[in-house]
Amino acid sequence: MESLHTSVPTTHLLYLHGFRSSPQSAKARLMASYVAEQHPRVQFWCPQLPPSPRTAMNMLSQGIAPWPHASMAVIGSSLGGYYANWVAQQARCPSVLLNPAVDPARDLAHHIGDQTSWHDPAEHFYFAPEFVDELRALDLRGRPPAARQMAIIAKGDEVLDWREMAGRYADAQITLLEGGDHALSNFAQHLPDVARFLRLA
Protein backbone atom coordinates (compact mmCIF):
# COMPACT_ATOMS: atom_id res chain seq x y z
CA MET A 1 0.00 0.00 0.00
CA GLU A 2 2.94 2.34 0.69
CA SER A 3 5.11 1.47 -2.30
CA LEU A 4 3.79 3.93 -4.88
CA HIS A 5 3.69 6.95 -2.59
CA THR A 6 6.37 6.50 0.06
CA SER A 7 8.34 9.66 -0.73
CA VAL A 8 6.57 11.36 -3.63
CA PRO A 9 5.22 14.80 -2.67
CA THR A 10 1.68 15.69 -3.65
CA THR A 11 1.59 18.23 -6.49
CA HIS A 12 -2.11 17.95 -7.41
CA LEU A 13 -4.93 17.94 -4.87
CA LEU A 14 -8.62 17.25 -5.49
CA TYR A 15 -11.24 18.27 -2.89
CA LEU A 16 -14.75 16.78 -3.03
CA HIS A 17 -17.65 18.38 -1.15
CA GLY A 18 -20.63 16.60 0.36
CA PHE A 19 -24.32 16.23 -0.46
CA ARG A 20 -26.08 19.61 -0.88
CA SER A 21 -22.70 21.26 -0.39
CA SER A 22 -20.41 23.16 -2.74
CA PRO A 23 -16.91 24.57 -3.19
CA GLN A 24 -18.17 27.37 -0.90
CA SER A 25 -18.21 25.06 2.12
CA ALA A 26 -16.11 26.22 5.07
CA LYS A 27 -13.75 23.23 4.84
CA ALA A 28 -13.28 23.57 1.08
CA ARG A 29 -12.45 27.27 1.42
CA LEU A 30 -10.12 26.62 4.36
CA MET A 31 -8.28 23.95 2.39
CA ALA A 32 -8.04 26.15 -0.71
CA SER A 33 -6.63 29.06 1.33
CA TYR A 34 -4.20 26.86 3.21
CA VAL A 35 -2.85 25.32 0.00
CA ALA A 36 -2.56 28.72 -1.69
CA GLU A 37 -0.66 30.21 1.27
CA GLN A 38 1.44 27.29 2.48
CA HIS A 39 1.85 25.14 -0.64
CA PRO A 40 1.49 27.46 -3.65
CA ARG A 41 3.07 24.92 -6.01
CA VAL A 42 0.21 22.48 -5.48
CA GLN A 43 -2.55 22.54 -8.08
CA PHE A 44 -5.88 22.57 -6.20
CA TRP A 45 -9.24 21.67 -7.75
CA CYS A 46 -12.57 21.73 -5.94
CA PRO A 47 -15.33 21.36 -8.55
CA GLN A 48 -19.07 21.73 -8.06
CA LEU A 49 -20.29 18.14 -8.26
CA PRO A 50 -23.43 17.35 -10.26
CA PRO A 51 -26.22 15.45 -8.43
CA SER A 52 -25.75 12.28 -10.50
CA PRO A 53 -22.96 10.16 -8.98
CA ARG A 54 -22.19 8.61 -12.37
CA THR A 55 -21.95 12.02 -14.04
CA ALA A 56 -19.85 13.32 -11.16
CA MET A 57 -17.35 10.46 -11.36
CA ASN A 58 -17.12 10.77 -15.16
CA MET A 59 -16.39 14.49 -14.76
CA LEU A 60 -13.72 13.80 -12.14
CA SER A 61 -12.13 11.02 -14.18
CA GLN A 62 -11.82 13.38 -17.15
CA GLY A 63 -10.56 16.23 -14.97
CA ILE A 64 -7.74 14.24 -13.37
CA ALA A 65 -6.83 12.30 -16.52
CA PRO A 66 -3.91 14.64 -17.35
CA TRP A 67 -2.76 14.73 -13.71
CA PRO A 68 0.32 12.76 -12.61
CA HIS A 69 -1.39 10.05 -10.56
CA ALA A 70 1.86 9.25 -8.74
CA SER A 71 1.82 12.71 -7.15
CA MET A 72 -1.89 13.46 -6.74
CA ALA A 73 -4.17 13.07 -3.71
CA VAL A 74 -7.84 13.51 -2.90
CA ILE A 75 -9.77 14.84 0.09
CA GLY A 76 -13.49 14.28 0.53
CA SER A 77 -16.09 15.27 3.10
CA SER A 78 -19.22 13.21 3.89
CA LEU A 79 -20.59 12.04 0.51
CA GLY A 80 -17.41 13.53 -0.95
CA GLY A 81 -15.48 11.13 1.29
CA TYR A 82 -17.31 8.20 -0.29
CA TYR A 83 -16.47 9.61 -3.71
CA ALA A 84 -12.85 10.26 -2.65
CA ASN A 85 -12.47 6.63 -1.66
CA TRP A 86 -13.58 5.63 -5.17
CA VAL A 87 -11.32 8.17 -6.90
CA ALA A 88 -8.34 7.09 -4.77
CA GLN A 89 -8.96 3.47 -5.76
CA GLN A 90 -9.02 4.37 -9.47
CA ALA A 91 -5.98 6.66 -9.33
CA ARG A 92 -4.19 4.57 -6.68
CA CYS A 93 -3.44 7.76 -4.77
CA PRO A 94 -3.49 8.84 -1.10
CA SER A 95 -6.74 10.15 0.34
CA VAL A 96 -8.11 11.98 3.36
CA LEU A 97 -11.72 11.31 4.34
CA LEU A 98 -13.60 13.78 6.57
CA ASN A 99 -16.60 12.22 8.35
CA PRO A 100 -17.00 10.00 5.25
CA ALA A 101 -20.34 8.54 4.19
CA VAL A 102 -20.45 4.77 4.61
CA ASP A 103 -23.63 3.74 2.79
CA PRO A 104 -25.05 6.77 0.95
CA ALA A 105 -27.27 4.57 -1.24
CA ARG A 106 -29.09 3.57 1.94
CA ASP A 107 -29.09 7.02 3.54
CA LEU A 108 -29.94 9.16 0.51
CA ALA A 109 -32.80 6.92 -0.60
CA HIS A 110 -34.82 9.05 1.84
CA HIS A 111 -33.83 12.27 0.04
CA ILE A 112 -35.17 11.63 -3.45
CA GLY A 113 -36.78 14.73 -4.92
CA ASP A 114 -36.13 18.46 -5.01
CA GLN A 115 -33.20 19.60 -2.84
CA THR A 116 -31.74 22.99 -2.00
CA SER A 117 -28.08 23.88 -1.81
CA TRP A 118 -26.81 24.24 1.74
CA HIS A 119 -24.90 27.44 0.95
CA ASP A 120 -27.51 29.02 -1.30
CA PRO A 121 -31.12 27.98 -0.60
CA ALA A 122 -32.11 29.71 -3.86
CA GLU A 123 -30.23 26.98 -5.75
CA HIS A 124 -32.21 23.80 -6.34
CA PHE A 125 -31.32 20.40 -7.76
CA TYR A 126 -33.23 17.18 -8.23
CA PHE A 127 -32.00 13.98 -6.62
CA ALA A 128 -33.42 11.29 -8.90
CA PRO A 129 -34.29 7.70 -7.86
CA GLU A 130 -31.71 6.23 -10.25
CA PHE A 131 -28.95 8.10 -8.40
CA VAL A 132 -29.31 5.59 -5.55
CA ASP A 133 -28.26 2.76 -7.87
CA GLU A 134 -25.42 4.93 -9.18
CA LEU A 135 -24.19 5.35 -5.60
CA ARG A 136 -24.43 1.61 -5.01
CA ALA A 137 -22.26 1.00 -8.09
CA LEU A 138 -19.43 2.99 -6.46
CA ASP A 139 -19.43 0.93 -3.24
CA LEU A 140 -15.96 -0.48 -2.52
CA ARG A 141 -16.68 -2.24 0.76
CA GLY A 142 -14.43 -5.24 1.20
CA ARG A 143 -11.62 -3.73 -0.85
CA PRO A 144 -8.61 -2.29 1.00
CA PRO A 145 -7.45 1.20 -0.02
CA ALA A 146 -5.06 1.28 -2.96
CA ALA A 147 -2.78 3.78 -1.22
CA ARG A 148 -2.35 5.53 2.12
CA GLN A 149 -5.61 6.75 3.63
CA MET A 150 -6.43 9.02 6.56
CA ALA A 151 -9.87 9.46 8.11
CA ILE A 152 -10.89 12.24 10.50
CA ILE A 153 -14.03 11.11 12.33
CA ALA A 154 -16.01 13.05 14.92
CA LYS A 155 -17.83 11.12 17.63
CA GLY A 156 -20.24 14.05 17.84
CA ASP A 157 -21.29 13.79 14.16
CA GLU A 158 -25.05 14.38 14.18
CA VAL A 159 -25.58 12.93 10.68
CA LEU A 160 -23.37 9.83 10.49
CA ASP A 161 -22.58 7.18 13.14
CA TRP A 162 -18.91 7.43 14.10
CA ARG A 163 -18.77 3.70 14.90
CA GLU A 164 -19.97 2.85 11.40
CA MET A 165 -17.42 5.22 9.86
CA ALA A 166 -14.54 3.88 11.95
CA GLY A 167 -15.53 0.29 11.13
CA ARG A 168 -15.92 0.92 7.41
CA TYR A 169 -12.61 2.77 7.06
CA ALA A 170 -10.67 0.64 9.55
CA ASP A 171 -7.70 0.36 7.15
CA ALA A 172 -7.21 4.13 7.28
CA GLN A 173 -5.05 6.08 9.72
CA ILE A 174 -7.94 7.25 11.89
CA THR A 175 -8.06 10.47 13.89
CA LEU A 176 -11.04 9.99 16.21
CA LEU A 177 -12.33 13.23 17.70
CA GLU A 178 -14.18 13.36 20.99
CA GLY A 179 -17.25 15.49 20.35
CA GLY A 180 -17.09 17.57 17.20
CA ASP A 181 -19.81 17.74 14.56
CA HIS A 182 -20.59 16.61 11.02
CA ALA A 183 -19.24 19.85 9.55
CA LEU A 184 -15.92 19.42 11.42
CA SER A 185 -16.14 23.00 12.62
CA ASN A 186 -12.60 22.75 13.99
CA PHE A 187 -11.14 21.61 10.67
CA ALA A 188 -8.64 24.49 10.64
CA GLN A 189 -6.64 22.92 13.44
CA HIS A 190 -6.29 19.68 11.47
CA LEU A 191 -4.92 21.32 8.31
CA PRO A 192 -1.22 20.88 9.22
CA ASP A 193 -1.78 17.16 9.95
CA VAL A 194 -3.62 16.71 6.65
CA ALA A 195 -0.84 18.52 4.78
CA ARG A 196 1.83 16.35 6.45
CA PHE A 197 -0.06 13.15 5.73
CA LEU A 198 -0.47 14.09 2.05
CA ARG A 199 3.12 15.40 1.85
CA LEU A 200 1.98 18.52 0.04
CA ALA A 201 4.76 19.90 -2.13
Rank of each mutant, 00 (worst) to 15 (best):
P68Q: 14
L138V: 01
D107W: 05
V74Q: 07
W86R: 14
A84S: 14
L138T: 01
Y82A: 05
N58T: 06
N85G: 13
L97I: 04
F125V: 07
D114S: 14
A88L: 12
A65W: 08
S117L: 09
N58D: 10
Q115R: 15
M59K: 11
R141I: 07
E134A: 00
D107K: 07
A122V: 06
S78A: 05
P100Q: 11
G80H: 09
C93I: 03
S95F: 01
P104Y: 04
A56S: 14
D139S: 09
D103M: 02
M59H: 12
Y82V: 02
G63E: 10
H119Q: 11
M57Q: 12
D103C: 03
I112V: 15
N58R: 06
E130L: 01
M57F: 13
T116L: 04
P50M: 08
Y126A: 09
Y126P: 01
I112E: 01
S52H: 02
A91H: 02
H119L: 10
N99P: 04
G142F: 08
Q90R: 15
W67C: 13
P104K: 12
G113E: 12
V74P: 06
R143M: 13
L98F: 07
T116W: 01
L97T: 04
L60M: 10
H111D: 14
Q89W: 07
P121M: 06
P66S: 14
V87T: 01
F125H: 13
G80W: 05
R106N: 08
D103T: 09
A73Q: 04
D107Q: 06
H111N: 12
V96K: 03
P104W: 03
A91S: 12
M72W: 05
A91P: 03
V87M: 06
P145T: 06
A128I: 02
R143T: 11
R136W: 00
G80S: 11
S52K: 03
P144Q: 15
V132E: 00
G81S: 13
V74F: 05
A122D: 10
S61A: 15
Q90I: 06
R141S: 10
V132I: 15
G142Y: 10
R92F: 07
D139G: 03
W67M: 12
H111G: 01
P68W: 02
G142M: 07
N99F: 04
A128R: 11
Q115I: 08
S78D: 03
V74H: 06
S71H: 13
H69D: 08
N58A: 08
H69T: 05
A84R: 04
H69C: 09
S78K: 02
M72P: 02
A122F: 03
R106F: 11
C93F: 05
F131L: 00
A73H: 04
D103E: 04
W118L: 13
E134Y: 00
L108C: 07
P144M: 15
P121E: 13
Q62E: 12
M72H: 05
G63R: 10
A56D: 06
Q89D: 10
D120E: 13
S71C: 14
N85K: 08
P66Q: 14
S77C: 09
E134K: 00
N99K: 03
Y126W: 07
S61M: 08
A109W: 01
S78W: 02
D103Q: 05
R143A: 14
P129F: 04
G63H: 09
G113A: 12
